[in-house]
Design a protein around this nucleic acid. Structure first.
Lengths: 189, 189
DNA sequence: GCGAGTGATGACAGAAGCTGTCGTCACCGA
DNA sequence: TCGGTGACGACAGCTTCTGTCATCACTCGC
């Protein structure tokens, strides 16, 4: 095996994504992933806790990014506006868009990967709630605001992805629009 | 092995929950569960797709219950009120409360089980959205309303569980209160 | 009653996921 | 130049999950 090539983690991620696309998630063995990255199966598990985790490396960074953005919002801002302001700033999207799309396709097609994605989302959700707590917002309010914020974020992102866009242009507007739509649904009693 | 005892599925569920409590989820093997239920490991997999699934047998019934309740709401009712009305009626809670509490404790302590719980929730969420769609509600509105409704349901349930209660008394009120709190957070821009 | 069909089960084999352990080798600092 | 450190390979082994086939209990039609 060719050792010390560097970039080990990224090599494994790329190999895994490619193989999942080529032959499907469940018909791909960890040994195959490792082999394509010039490693052994055992080494794969030194970089990732399990086979699913190889597609979720950026989760931690995203969480940090969001929390940092929240901390940068002017004090005294209400909970939901705080989250929306943070969302508008944060998405510098670390990974190339193409990678994210390929990744999303693979995840959507495989229940085990969807499960992992959901728990990553919950983890981020809990981090957001905690960040709001640190700003003096009450627990239940923080929790509700997080639910609302993530709902808005998803709708805005879906609409955003459906159109042609460059950079982050227009994303804050998409957030505002989605927030207004949510409010309309909430008040149409 | 003692065959044909009947109630096989339930025997496996009870054995699994007990063992998870006694020695933890990951230190319990499927073979042990099967043995306590007077079965072999292979038979376990004839009743449940995998080790996690043994704790989520009632998920399908709950989904059906909710969807049925939605269909019973008067036509023309807005999306969110429809969901809340359905939630207020549906929780006849099939399983004994004690079982649900033990189950919740085990799930909360084990990430693999949390993952499974999340995807079950998403499945129910999708069913709710579809049920709203069938009532002529637009896709995005249905989705937003489902997000809102589940957020309200969770808050109401948490508060509900924290107090002393008999039957379903007061649960509709808890839903109303939670909905009002959500609205307050949504509008406090 | 009695034989064929049906369904649940046991027994066995085996692939793949995941972990523990130990020795090896490249790199780094003193 | 030498010992420490960290990444890696090589095994061994347990567990999860699946495929396959024989067996046994129950049912239904005759």
């Amino acid at each position: 095996m060719a050792r010390w090539e560097g970039n080990t983690r990224n090599r494994l991620e790329q190999a895994a994504l490619a193989l999942f696309e080529e032959q499907g998630y469940d018909r791909t063995t960890v040994a195959q992933i490792a082999q394509r990255a010039n490693l052994t199966e055992r080494s794969f598990y030194r970089w990732f806790a399990d086979k699913r985790e190889v597609l979720f490396g950026g989760s931690q960074e995203l969480e940090t990014e969001f929390v940092t953005a929240i901390d940068a919002v002017p004090p005294g801002t209400p909970a939901l506006p705080t989250l929306l302001a943070a969302f508008a700033t944060a998405p510098r999207v670390f990974r190339p868009r193409e990678f994210l799309l390929r990744r999303a396709t693979v995840i959507a097609a495989n229940p085990p990967l969807r499960e992992r994605e959901l728990i990553k989302l919950v983890t981020i959700s809990e981090a957001l709630t905690t960040a709001l707590l640190d700003r003096g917002i009450g627990p239940e309010t923080a929790r509700l605001a997080t639910d609302l914020g993530l709902s808005v974020l998803r709708l805005a992102t879906e609409r955003w992805m459906a159109e042609e866009h460059r950079d982050g242009k227009g994303f804050p507007e998409a957030l505002s629009t989605a927030a207004a739509d949510l409010l309309a649904v909430a008040t149409s009693a």
